[in-house]
Design a binder for these strands. Structure first.
Lengths: 156, 156
DNA sequence: TATTCAATGGTCAAGTATGGTCAGAAAAGA
DNA sequence: TCTTTTCTGACCATACTTGACCATTGAATA
C-alpha cells in the first residue's frame, strides 16, 4: 500500500524524467487538487524527497502566477560532487539523507545499481544498528556481514 | 501441536515460494490481525527465523504505508560464502581481517575491483576512525564522505 | 503613488498510521 | 524441575496527513 507522499514523489519524478533540461514547474494548489490533498502535503513531499541531499533544488514564488520549480542537479555541469563532498565533511546524515544521496549518485551513474544497494544497506539502521556497536571491530563485522548478505541476494 | 510462531513462519515461507524473485512484502499489523496475535509476535518470528544466518534479510519501514520486506538469500549455490557468513556473525573483525576478506571476495569475483575498493575504504581506520563517532548520523556522514572520495578518484 | 486585496505559497503543531523494543508471564520441552 | 521458547502488553520511534494561521506578490483601485 503506497502512501500518498510516495505517489506524489513518483509523479514529480516522472515529470522530471520527461523534462529535457531536468527542470519542471508546477503549482502547489493544482498539484494538491490533482491528488486531492491539502496543499501542505506538497511541501511535505518536497522537504522529505527533493532536498539538495537528494540531488534537487526547489525554488518557489508566491502570489499571483506563483509556482514551484524543481531542478534536478546535474553533477557534471556544476561540480556538484565536490560541493557535496565539502558539505558532508564533518556533518551528520540521517538514514533518509544518506539513502537519498546514494540514490542520486546512482541516477547520475556514479554508482552501479549493485554498488548503490551495497552501500545503502551498510548505512541502514539495521547495520548501523540503533545503538552504537561496542567497538570498531564489531562494527566492521556487521558491515562485512551486510556485504555478504547483499552478494547472496537472489533479486539482484 | 505447532506453535503460532511456526505457523507464521510456514505462512511466510509459502509466500516466498510463490514470489518470483524471493522477495515478499507484508504489513505487520495485517499479519498479526490474520493470525490474531499481538504485532510484536511478528517481530519475534522475524528475529528468530528470518535472520541473515537463516538466509534472509528483512527490511522495514514505519509510518503510513509502512511495510515489512523479506528477502531470501541464495545460499544453496554458494556454500563458501555461507560458511564465511556464519563465521562473521556476532564476531569482530580487525581492519586487517576485513581487508583480507574483501580481497578474497574480490579474487573470487564476488566483488568488482571498484566495489572492493569502495568497501575497503569504508572499513578502513580512517573512516571508522579509532574512536567511535558520537552517533550514527556522524558515522554515516563519514562513510558517505569515503564513498564520494572514492568516486572522485580518477584512477578507477 | 499608495492602498487594497485576491492569488499564491510557507510553517508548524496536532493527529494518525505504521513498525520496534523490551521485560516479564506462560507454555513447551528436556 | 529446570531451561528454552513463545507470547503478551506497555511504551517508543518514525513516517505521513491535515488544518489553522502566516507571508509574499502583483494587479486593481483609490
Amino acid at each position: 500500500m503506497s502512501s500518498l507522499s510516495r505517489e506524489i514523489e513518483k509523479y514529480l519524478k516522472t515529470l522530471l524524467e520527461n523534462a529535457h533540461n531536468g527542470v519542471i514547474e508546477v503549482q502547489r494548489s493544482t498539484l494538491s487538487g490533482f491528488f486531492e490533498c491539502v496543499p501542505s502535503q506538497i511541501n511535505y513531499v518536497l522537504s522529505t524527497r527533493f532536498t539538495p541531499a537528494h540531488g534537487y533544488i526547489v525554488e518557489t514564488r508566491r502570489g499571483g502566477g506563483g509556482y514551484v520549480r524543481i531542478i534536478r542537479l546535474n553533477i557534471n555541469s556544476n561540480n556538484k560532487l565536490k560541493i557535496l563532498f565539502d558539505e558532508i565533511i564533518g556533518s551528520e546524515l540521517t538514514q533518509n539523507q544518506s539513502e537519498g544521496l546514494l540514490e542520486y549518485l546512482r541516477k547520475e551513474d556514479y554508482l552501479t545499481r549493485r554498488e548503490a544497494i551495497l552501500l545503502k544497506n551498510i548505512t541502514s539502521e539495521n547495520v548501523l544498528a540503533g545503538s552504537l556497536p561496542k567497538n570498531m571491530d564489531t562494527l566492521r563485522a556487521q558491515i562485512l556481514q551486510s556485504i555478504l548478505a547483499t552478494i547472496l541476494r537472489e533479486d539482484i
